[in-house]
């Protein structure tokens, strides 16, 4: 039996598909539970993609609003996470297309767990430097490459899922990830690495 409003805790044991069936039946109450399950992943993807905390917040909110508005377009043949990432990625791409929304080299310091004050100053500084290097390296990728590497590296999605989200073939995803890795190697390991070392060997 599906839980009715007022038994929020009961929803925690329901599958994504069950929750979406309730939403599709017109009851938006499970939206809170779905938000709790996926908002972290959605927000982190959008934040790393757009490099803008404010836009990432909008992307997150819009993703779940669209989820409710277009709930009947979810047929359960794909994972809910894949569908949600599709909505987010679309929103982010649209956002970047607008002239004034190019990704910025943001040094946004967001609230994170655990607090940096709990670590030693040296370690905090070292970590901050590493973060900055990685953020800049990701920023050097094309939006398509960044989308592919973020979904692959940080969200653990398969190339088939990424292809579905990005609206391209698996082969295109493979190429994007490969080229992204080449660029990242150069940026993070230094020039001379990640180039054509192997290609010129034979």
């Amino acid at each position: 039996m599906l839980p009715s409003k007022g038994t929020e805790s009961g929803m925690k044991h329901l599958s994504d598909q069950d929750l979406m069936r309730i939403v599709q039946a017109g009851d938006h109450y499970p939206a809170s539970e779905i938000y709790d399950r996926y908002s972290g992943r959605i927000y982190n993807f959008a934040f790393r993609f757009l490099k803008n905390a404010e836009a990432a917040e909008d992307a997150t909110q819009e993703t779940f609003v669209k989820m409710l508005r277009h709930a009947n377009q979810f047929h359960g043949d794909a994972k809910l996470s894949t569908w949600l990432f599709s909505i987010t990625a679309n929103w982010c791409r649209d956002h970047l297309r607008k002239a004034d929304n190019k990704p910025k080299d943001s040094d946004d310091v967001l609230v994170m767990l655990p607090a940096s004050s709990d670590t030693s100053p040296d370690r905090t500084l070292e970590r901050r430097e590493d973060e900055t290097r990685v953020r800049k390296a990701l920023g050097a990728l094309t939006p398509e490459q960044r989308e592919a590497i973020l979904l692959s590296r940080y969200q653990g999605l398969s190339y088939a899922e990424i292809a579905q989200i990005s609206g391209c073939s698996e082969g295109a995803v493979k190429t994007r990830v490969f080229r992204a890795m080449e660029t990242l190697k150069k940026a993070l390991m230094g020039e001379g690495r990640g180039g054509s070392r192997c290609l010129t060997a034979k």
């Binding site: 927000y43 934040f47 997150t60 994170m112 970590r127 290097r133 953020r135 990701l138 590497i149 993070l188």
Partner: peptide, 11 residues
């Protein structure tokens, strides 16, 4: 190295 990017909390 990509792991160095921290997970951020949703406000």
């Amino acid at each position: 190295m990509l792991e160095e990017l921290p997970v951020v909390e949703v406000p």
